[in-house]
Design a protein around this nucleic acid. Sequence first.
DNA 1: CGCCCTTTTGAAGAAAATCAAGGGCAGTGG
DNA 2: CCACTGCCCTTGATTTTCTTCAAAAGGGCG
Lengths: 247, 247
Amino acid sequence: MPKTCRDAFTNKLASLVTLSEADLRAIEGLKVDVRQIDRRRPILTQGDLPDYIYVLLDGWAARYELRSDGSRRITGFLIPGDFCGIHAVCHAAMDHSIIALTKCDIGRIPVDAVADIGRDHPAINMALWRAKLIEEAILRKWLLFSTNARATVAHLLCELYARAAIVGLAENGRCGVPLTQEEVGDALGLTAVHVNRVLRQLREGGSVDLSHQQLVIKDAQRLSHEARFDRAYLEPWLSENAVSLLG
Amino acid sequence: MPKTCRDAFTNKLASLVTLSEADLRAIEGLKVDVRQIDRRRPILTQGDLPDYIYVLLDGWAARYELRSDGSRRITGFLIPGDFCGIHAVCHAAMDHSIIALTKCDIGRIPVDAVADIGRDHPAINMALWRAKLIEEAILRKWLLFSTNARATVAHLLCELYARAAIVGLAENGRCGVPLTQEEVGDALGLTAVHVNRVLRQLREGGSVDLSHQQLVIKDAQRLSHEARFDRAYLEPWLSENAVSLLG
DNA sequence: CGCCCTTTTGAAGAAAATCAAGGGCAGTGG
DNA sequence: CCACTGCCCTTGATTTTCTTCAAAAGGGCG
């Protein structure tokens, strides 16, 4: 794992496009700083017009929106290496909020600097587009699996494993997933109770086990089938190097 | 309604940002052509690497993806003035397909020309970003209203009305909505049968009537409440002129 | 140890899917 | 002009899925 924010930012961009020496030097010149945010603390709030692009260095976070009845819908998870606040490059306010699900280390990069770099370096501009398009592709997949809770949960587990694997946080079918069942439910539009039952079904089915913050894939073939998971949707945007890490 | 593709493209960009004279001249210089596509014919297909940005001039279309069991999920509707194929500006293949829901007139603009213009004209680049962010905001809202079929359907009707109003296709609480109940169901993850029942409930409730391809809003207040609709999510991206059209 | 948060399990009820059949309407062709 | 056909809408009966309500059992941490 990269030790500095700049490393993490560079890694992320490099996974999306091929960076030239000039691109790398430009990134090297960015001002960045790192701060820690406690579990359940806001990172960005709906309506904010952020001055920084944020890069998650350690920990997990979630995008979410509140409904008028107070219930919460999580619309995406952020894992180490992910951005947030790209909205700011076009001076748009956040239309959703972001919260730390665990204690997080977050790097901040001044948005104007990123916008400038994007203008002068087409590859970097393209990387930002691709990051956005990946998010969109994931969002679209979340819409796709809304008929059957079993497949929905299984698909989320596949997505999280694949994304963790890309950034080196998974191996041998295992990775840490620090989500409560309520958070999973908020993400999938299910109740925590039902998530619990579905997780038990999956565990007893022998394909996958999510418990004690650990995701263990026991039968990848069966799981992929149950989830109707096809990792292709995560790949078109990634550079070759990143794809090869998927294994 | 604009009579040429270039007009439509200009209108769309102008609704998203303030264009300078230079921006307008650049757009004026774009090569564009128009073609007609029959109902149920593909416009773009998953895997395509489009050479053009498409602008829908007349008719409705839908983004969709097929599940492994053959069922279809519609992930967005396109109405006149909307783009598709922006993926191409970063040389990414389509991760979903787009189909004409009615007979459509579609303008094509060479993607390389758009990319060049975006690089030289920051305002136009920003407009493209904003178009993408609106799509994303809509996608996020679709995730948000997935607990209750009544609210879900009502919310979609509100969205479609608001978007139609922005481009001058709605007035006095009426607009054309050329969707079958099956298409609505595919968009919301509901069966056509259930959509039918919900539409009847809404009709009998007196807030809104969708039938014979016509959407009639009878009680905007009640409908907004049933739908928990807050048009704010469509506004942050629009220029002032476009917002004032919302009435 | 005791507290709070999370997980687990049960029972009852609501929501939506599924299965099945009929009806209206537009377009087609005799 | 009328019958036929295909597509879409409508309605009913039944079953499945998921929620709701309720309660108890872990598990980590002060």
